[in-house]
């Protein structure tokens, strides 16, 4: 199963490397959104809850783009049928897609978080970095699991581009709550969050539950 998953993952990453479809669009979108927020809020610098909210809503919306594109190649060129013909475990496809999405999200954040720090953030980023990295990682894991499931769910529908955001955004609300609440004390002037552990537990629990659910039900989406 691991071998199949790595094969599919390698294929996905190679396609992404050559076509440059998802990741550049996601990063560009996030930077554009920061500019929009600058004008929309009419503020030069942000801190505290506002900064964390802007950062997380932007990351979430940028993730929608990645999720929409995740199964595009399979749908357009019949990759699913070929995958079903091969005598391999179907869950491998889910793992490959979730890991691919995780990599996309990490690449997105490598650009978007520094861009946010330069463009909008008032307090320095470096003091908050260790905790912030942990929050980012936990939120990415949850987003990758839910995103792979949502992408597969929406792939068969007629209005794929409409269904993905409608499904993904409400499902990601607990992630947003956990991540934004954990981040906001980190990005304020005083720094230091006392509730950090509580929100990290929420993010971890979400990752666990939705990882298991997505893992369990994914097979049923591929039966034909």
């Amino acid at each position: 199963m691991i071998r199949t998953a790595t094969a599919v993952l390698r294929k996905d990453l190679r396609i992404e490397w050559r076509t440059k479809e998802a990741v550049p669009a996601m990063t560009l979108f996030s930077v554009t959104t920061f500019v929009l927020f600058h004008f929309g809020l009419d503020r030069d610098t942000l801190d505290g809850p506002l900064a964390s909210g802007v950062l997380w809503v932007t990351l979430l919306l940028a993730a929608v783009i990645g999720v929409t594109r995740l199964f595009a190649a399979e749908r357009e060129q019949g990759g699913i049928d070929a995958f079903l013909l091969a005598p391999v475990d179907r869950t491998a496809l889910f793992i490959a897609k979730a890991v691919a999405l995780l990599i996309y999200l990490v690449l997105l954040e490598l650009v978007a978080v520094p861009a946010f720090a330069i463009l909008l953030l008032g307090p320095g980023l470096f003091e908050a970095l260790p905790e912030l990295l942990l929050v980012l990682l936990l939120a990415d894991l949850g987003l990758a699991a839910v995103g792979a499931l949502v992408s597969a769910l929406a792939a068969e529908t007629r209005a794929r581009e409409l269904i993905v955001p409608l499904l993904l955004l409400p499902l990601a609300v607990p992630l947003l709550i956990g991540a934004a609440s954990a981040t906001s004390p980190l990005l304020s002037e005083g720094g230091g969050g006392e509730d950090l552990a509580r929100y990290l537990a929420l993010l971890g629990g979400y990752d666990l539950v939705f990882g298991l659910i997505a893992f369990g039900v994914f097979d049923f989406l591929l039966e034909d």
Binding site: P174, I177, S181, Y206, V217
Partner: peptide
């Protein structure tokens, strides 16, 4: 598949919003 994922989402969401 949607009904299962969303059904599991109901309790998680209530916990999360209360934590917020």
């Amino acid at each position: 598949v949607f009904a299962i994922a969303a059904g599991a989402f109901v309790p998680i969401n209530f916990v999360a919003v209360r934590l917020a």
